[in-house]
Design a protein around this nucleic acid. Sequence first.
RNA 1: GCGCUUGUAGCUCAGUGGAUAGAGCGCUACCCUGCGGAGGUAGAGGCCGUGGGUUCGAGUCCCGCCAAGCGCGCCA
Length: 552
Amino acid sequence: MIRDDLASIVDAAAHAAMDAGELPQVALPEIVIERPSRPEHGDYATNLPLRLARAARANPLDLARKIAARIPLEGALAAAEAAPPGFINVRLSEAWLARQVDVIVASGASFADAKLGAGQRVQVEFVSANPTGPLTAGNGRGAAIGSVLASVLEAAGYDVQREYLVNDAGTQTEAFGRTLVARYLQLFGKDVEVPPDGYPGDYMLDVAKRVKDESADAYLTASPAAPPPEMVLRGVDIMVEEIRSDLDRLGVRYDEWFRERGVYEDSVYDEAMKVLRDKGFLVEKEGALWFASTELGEDKDNVVIRSTGKPTYFASDIAYHFDKFVRRRFDRVIDVWGADHQGHVSRMKAAVEALGVDPARLHILIYQLVSFRRGEELVRLSKRAGNIVLIRDVVEEVGRDAARFFFLARSADSQMEFDLELAKRQSAENPVYYVQYAHARIAGILANAAERAPAFDDADVSLLQHPMELELVRKMLELPELIVHMARTCEPHHLPHYAQELATAFHAFYTECRVLSDDASLTKARLKLCLAAKIALARALALMGVTAPDRM
RNA sequence: GCGCUUGUAGCUCAGUGGAUAGAGCGCUACCCUGCGGAGGUAGAGGCCGUGGGUUCGAGUCCCGCCAAGCGCGCCA
């Protein structure tokens, strides 16, 4: 990648200047290559001279001149100029830029792939909402962030596994089971109330009906106080099917649906607890067993086994992470959690550390909650309230593509307000259509060309010299850099903005430069440029899980 | 009270310590006898919450304050 190459070129130039005695021998800081915001500052810039000035006790502009003079102008590089107060601005060769069209077309669907991950195994776990109800619209944000982050990591060269943790154990599952039994018995005309801590939503009636259809009166003697385990499991399975289909509507797929119950059945839990016990992290107080997280700098300890003898959710989460790191040996694990879980981040990291795993291998990505409104009316999100917005409703209202684009376009750190009415009303003005339109427009031109223009495999791309043509190429070349940046920072929200900029660059080119003309050579070159732009747009859209239509 | 996150254009939001802070929507004025006008061009609109500090340089880093969201269970 040109940006990384440039860093080593600058590094070499600085060393060459030192060896020549033009600047004192000092340790170089990390070479930062940035993209200047103003075009007259070139394609890339480095502030190395400014950072070096103090140690070298020299004028930064002077340093810039000396280092710039030693940057070889060959291949991709056309100019390296010192600029006050001490930048080196680098300009790419226009001939080289034009040649990249051939490179992009040749790489096809793998355009912008990077090797950052070097095949490391990464797990991205996201959504993992309790299977006690259908997914809420708020879960959609986690789904969009998690799935796109996974795709980005894949593009960056990681071996990625997408996982959903199904919480099929614990108190909430028990409440779900009690509700299921109550609803089931009601179907037989029995006078049984849904327990106060249960789930009153109508969907539980549907679950109960399915259980009744499948098992008839097999559970007629069951009591809400003691739900039959296999009945609860069947109910959970039905709920998971629903969740799976909700996610499918959003275009989200998983490699693994991991059952929380599994950590108890497969001795993972016992092993994880043994590790903690052996290391002295488990202490008994007040009749319960605690994880001594204070020893790792936490401000308080946390219960892992209740005085009733039952493990807490934290205990199974510890076992679950033991499974991820020790059993399944992922190099890195990324958990995508909603802000309501943010209080668990540091204790989870402490637990992982206590298990003997470097906590840096665990990245917990917190996204702020989404609030929904319809015009002026605020919509409360609670599975127990009737007024809930489901992800399937959002997808139905605004469409999968717009929903994903919208959820994705904001940084995970910022809260977002989703006005369903606005999203629906403005759907034609939604940026996602702008991007898709650019793709469809290119597809239209290429289809048109297939009929009345010659094949362009042998196009001479060196004819691409118009500023708009080169601007479009520059924008395409940002994608590989962006993928690496997003993979490093776990920030997929840059993708929608990039896609929009790329679409703008294409529209600008299209307005300025006629593609199909009497000039056969230029027509071929521009058709090839169009194809390259289509490839780049399609890749950006594919990473977002948004369709790239040929017509709309 | 303590912790995490946020505060940038009328609205929704971008902005890897750099050079004159950006986009979309909305608003104003333009551009169709040629490939898809779901397009393009131009303009108005900003004490980047606030007060200090670090730095050659701060929207970006540090501290205080104000405001908002979310946490602070032997729930998950």
